[in-house]
């Protein structure tokens, strides 16, 4: 069964194709037998990897020469559609670059974007599922026109899956003249150093919140994370307070994580935090307030003081060697 052509915006991260792209390709393949990866860069550099994950072909703009890519990619997509290309759906990741593409494209096509999607299904037309109220309810939305449906997809919504396909065939996607809209240019890129497993890939995540009391106490989180081979994470409260960098933030405006085990220490469990970690296989929470919402999603909840429980836990784990 196929809903028609699906375009998937391909992005790269640290040299390889980004996980969100793999995830979307896997979903697109379930829905369509014509899956096209659209890329703002050199198509040959991703053809093999996206092919192996289910893309039949790649439409690529070629090198964008330092321009912030959103306007170029959206412009090229819109031009191709004006020229006769007719994707049924365009899947774009909820990433820094992805939202730029979706917003610009939506205006060019005069078509809305359905955002924050965690599932996509063919119910006589594509229907996107968006969690609201921290995931307590799901809203299902479909488009009412026959224009291409633009869906912004949240990371970790689908399981990536290699299909063993060969390299995807690459064709050129022409970038039209963008006028003033294309004039933002990246002059430098800085990578924040981080050690250990990546937050959104780690099998175990240990996160701390305002309940730690003070910045120095984040050491407790780092110590436990190091012991468990886990990635340290944080609530927005302590990111905003400057205790840890933004890259540690879990939640609606931070990273979506789905580890085997998520340990939340001194985190209340605000809806915006829950949407970022609720999909974890097992959740352990430590909070001194028995009424904290985090206990509503915890498989093991400890009503207690992090300053007592965490040091004891660490000591016990160290004693085991």
């Amino acid at each position: 069964m196929s809903v028609g052509t699906i375009w998937v915006l391909a992005e790269v991260a640290e040299g390889g194709v980004a996980s969100i792209t793999h995830e979307m390709l896997a979903k697109a393949r379930q829905l369509s037998d014509d899956v096209v990866a659209v890329f703002g860069g050199d198509g040959a550099s991703i053809a093999e990897e996206v092919g192996a994950h289910g893309a039949g072909s790649v439409l690529a703009t070629g090198d964008l020469g330092g321009a912030l890519p959103g306007p170029s990619i959206a412009g090229a997509m819109a031009a191709a559609i004006a020229g006769g290309a007719a994707p049924k759906a365009i899947m774009v990741g909820t990433t820094y670059g992805g939202r730029d593409v979706a917003g610009r494209l939506s205006v060019k096509l005069d078509a809305p974007v359905i955002t924050n999607i965690v599932d996509l299904a063919d119910e006589g037309g594509l229907v996107g599922t968006e969690p609201i109220f921290g995931g307590a309810s799901n809203v299902k939305t479909k488009f009412t026109s026959d224009k291409p449906g633009i869906f912004l997809i949240r990371p970790k919504s689908f399981e990536a899956e290699a299909t063993g396909g060969g390299a995807a065939a690459v064709s050129a996607l022409d970038v039209p003249d963008l006028g003033a809209t294309g004039t933002a240019v990246v002059t430098n890129s800085f990578v924040e150093a981080s050690e250990g497993p990546k937050l959104d890939e780690a099998a175990v995540v240990v996160s701390g919140g305002r309940g730690l009391g003070e910045s120095d106490k984040f050491e407790l989180i780092e110590g436990l994370a190091a012991k468990l081979g886990a990635a340290p994470g944080a609530s927005r409260a302590i990111v905003d307070a400057g205790w840890v960098p933004y890259s540690y933030q879990v939640g609606q405006t931070g990273k979506v994580v789905k580890p085997d085990v998520y340990i939340a220490a001194g985190i209340s469990g605000a809806t915006q935090h829950l949407v970022g970690m609720k999909g974890s296989k097992t959740i352990i929470a430590i909070n001194k307030d028995a009424e904290a919402p985090i206990f509503g999603v915890a498989d093991l909840g400890i009503v207690g003081d992090v300053h007592k429980v965490l040091p004891q836990l660490l000591e016990a784990l160290n004693a085991r060697g």
């Binding site: 809305p112 309810s137 799901n138 299902k140 224009k147 498989d299 009503v303």
Partner: peptide, 24 residues
């Protein structure tokens, strides 16, 4: 609005976990 909400559904709740009071 070129989109239409077709349903609002309760998400399946997580099963209640084990909650214990710390006494050391």
């Amino acid at each position: 609005a070129g989109q239409e909400i077709v349903a609002v559904e309760e998400a399946p709740a997580r099963e209640a976990g084990e909650i214990i009071e710390d006494e050391g």
